[in-house]
């Protein structure tokens, strides 16, 4: 592709129409952010305050401080869910990064019939909707005991393999073979070659894959819901939210629900603030699929 970087010096001066656009976007973005902002300040109100005056800020009558958060943490156990979500996400993404990058390098260098077949199988798996395999997957996972937060990463590795192998393969194909040949002459064996020569070159792809997989695993609801053993209290944030808020018109305090939503959104916003550039790059890199 023919990429032309626009240097700041090339940019024309700001025109009047652009200022007007900026004003329009400022209004548009305020409206865009409104749902999240309302949830945030409503989490400090009591139930009546939320229902009767949803769009107004907390006042002396309905302000309850952090009580909603306290109840949410104590009754719903959102911290425990957050802990399991974190364990599952970190283990799964680490496993996916290590295993699929090695796999992608191997199948692109060995190029046997089986490797080619495996590659196309991975691409095929990206088209298959989760509903097609979810019932039987939960039965298989149950049988193999993959139902705890420490074993479910194996399931995520299998499911994440499609996109990850595809993205890593795209990069591996672009590495000049001469580099690896030179390393062989210097006496590298394959593991040394991979970890000391190939892996450092693939760093940008690692970041992109990590971002995409993190967004997926952290927010995934259906897979952990079907696979995790709930009798042992294994829940993730989406499962905890779904159980707490489901059919809760009137039963669970609405204020507590607002607090739970805020607690679920905050870590994500923090993550976004920290690695915004990488996230945008990851999304663009992931969009080569299809």
């Amino acid at each position: 592709m023919n990429r032309v970087k626009r240097m700041p010096a090339d940019q024309p001066a700001v025109r009047r129409s652009d200022i007007l656009l900026s004003v329009i976007f400022a209004v548009l973005c305020s409206v865009y952010a409104l749902p999240l902002v309302t949830i945030l300040y409503n989490s400090f109100k009591d139930k009546e305050g939320i229902i009767s005056r949803f769009f107004s800020l907390p006042n002396a009558e309905n302000f309850v401080g952090f009580r909603n958060f306290q109840v949410g943490i104590e009754q719903i156990g959102i911290f425990k869910a957050a802990f399991y979500s974190l364990v599952i996400t970190v283990l799964s993404v680490a496993l996916i990064l290590i295993c699929t990058s090695m796999c992608a390098w191997y199948i692109n260098r060995v190029e046997s019939k089986f490797c080619r077949f495996f590659y196309y199988l991975c691409v095929f798996s990206m088209v298959v909707p989760f509903q097609m395999v979810m019932f039987t997957l939960s039965l298989v996972a149950n049988k193999l005991g993959l139902t705890s937060p420490y074993t479910i990463p194996v399931v995520y590795l299998g499911f994440g393999a499609g996109l990850a192998v595809f993205m890593f393969s795209g990069f591996v194909k672009a590495i000049p073979v001469e580099v690896e040949e030179a390393a062989t002459i210097d006496g590298c064996n394959p593991p040394q070659m991979f970890f000391q020569v190939v892996l450092p070159m693939m760093k940008p792809t690692y970041i992109s894959v990590a971002i995409l997989q993190t967004m997926w695993v952290w927010n995934d609801y259906l897979l952990p819901y079907l696979v995790l053993d709930k009798t042992k209290g294994f829940v993730t944030i989406p499962i905890a939210i779904q159980t707490a808020v489901k059919d809760s018109y009137g039963t669970v305090d609405t204020g507590v629900n607002m607090a739970l939503l805020v607690l679920a959104i905050l870590p994500v916003i923090a993550f976004y603030a920290l690695c915004q550039k990488q996230i945008v790059k990851g999304v663009v890199a992931g969009a080569v699929k299809g």
Binding site: C99, C103, F118, V140, V154, L157, G158, F159, V165
Partner: peptide
């Protein structure tokens, strides 16, 4: 590792 996980959870 990838092939086994893929086999178990997809194929």
């Amino acid at each position: 590792p990838t092939a086994l996980a893929f086999l178990v959870s997809f194929v």
